[in-house]
Design a protein around this nucleic acid. Structure first.
Lengths: 190, 190
DNA sequence: GATTGATCGTGACAGTGTCAAGTGAAATGA
DNA sequence: TCATTTCACTTGACACTGTCACGATCAATC
């Protein structure tokens, strides 16, 4: 994590890892087989903490809409507190995307989200396309985390005050949730 | 683009580019100054075509909601037709994210989206937070493009038939648009 | 007490980005 | 017209990288 944070994933190198660990230059390669293997292990660890955090965020909140908001906040909390992990987790070009363990723990994390959406459907709107909504939420969070820095520089160009990641999460989830409550018969298009 | 597509951004190398161009190994470095410089040029080209495509997608469509849908479709069309460019455009670790030309053309592309949302606000819902909605849309599209492959393997695990990128765009935009039409007084949260 | 397996260290190889120096042709200026 | 400068490279070198084969050490096991 140190190496990823200081040099970026780009300048990451097994030999630098070895240097900081005080071992020979080939030792990391022996353990993880590969640079890909090492980064895959990092990604798995990342998904594990994501899963833990989402479960913890959702726990004890009865209203599923509030629970969805909490899950969203949990997602960006992981992004903020574990930036090195998150830089790796979705980078299929540097990890073994077909690794079984990776798929399993990623699946678990996703399911926390889908379950929450399913409860919203039960309680508020039975016509809700659960799977689509869950993926919409995930895509939005992921895109937000990735684009946040662009948004900041965009605000700079427009001389507008910029919005923090946390605040953007709140706004985005509110906007999405509005959509979950909408039914066509409520209001025709003009 | 050839090199990026065949070896991935990970295995990308100036020397391979030089080989395919039939020039000496240092020639690309001379032209672009740097591997970062070359990839920044690619990103600028990518944002330029994105901007062109979004403008073309939006042109001639009167209803702003239909226009927003068209812009969304345009976004993923660029992602599909120019995968090499898109792999670079948002990778701030390998490009010069503070490049002035890059910021300018990226800004232009974003503004097509924000203008469309502004028109929706004018016509349908004056209380719409235009900036937030525009960024919600962009984040969602970006996240979707990035996560699509994960969604496919997720469907595989769940033994569900998977959804194409185009279809996901349709569904996501529909869900977002529902939210844009929603007003709290329409339906209380019971 | 010999063997085996794991955990490394060492050295080598091909490949990489980048830099300094050289090279030849085209453009420029007198 | 001819010297000079600029441009677009080429060449060669350096430090760095991942990965591999080969040894060395050492604890556990038979």
């Amino acid at each position: 994590m140190e190496v990823i944070l200081s040099t970026g994933l780009n300048g990451f190198s097994l030999r630098e890892v070895a240097r900081r660990a005080g071992v020979s230059h080939a030792a990391p390669g022996y353990h993880f087989g590969d640079v890909r293997g090492l980064l895959t292990a990092v990604a798995i660890e990342g998904f594990q903490t994501l899963n833990d955090e989402l479960v913890r965020s959702a726990a004890g909140i009865d209203d599923p809409i509030e629970r969805l908001k909490a899950v969203g906040r949990g997602y960006v909390r992981v992004a903020i507190e574990h930036p090195a992990h998150c830089e790796v987790m979705f980078r299929d070009d540097v990890i073994a995307a077909d690794d079984a363990n990776l798929a399993e723990v990623g699946f678990a994390a996703y399911m926390v989200l889908e379950d929450t959406v399913a409860t919203i459907a039960e309680r508020y709107n039975s016509e809700l396309p659960v799977r689509d909504v869950a993926r919409l939420c995930w895509s939005t969070m992921q895109g937000l985390v990735e684009l946040q820095s662009k948004f900041v520089s965009l605000d700079l160009m427009l001389a507008r005050s910029s919005t923090s990641l946390d605040e953007n999460v709140e706004r985005f989830t509110d906007l999405i949730i509005s959509g979950l409550l909408y039914r066509p018969e409520m209001m025709p298009l003009t």
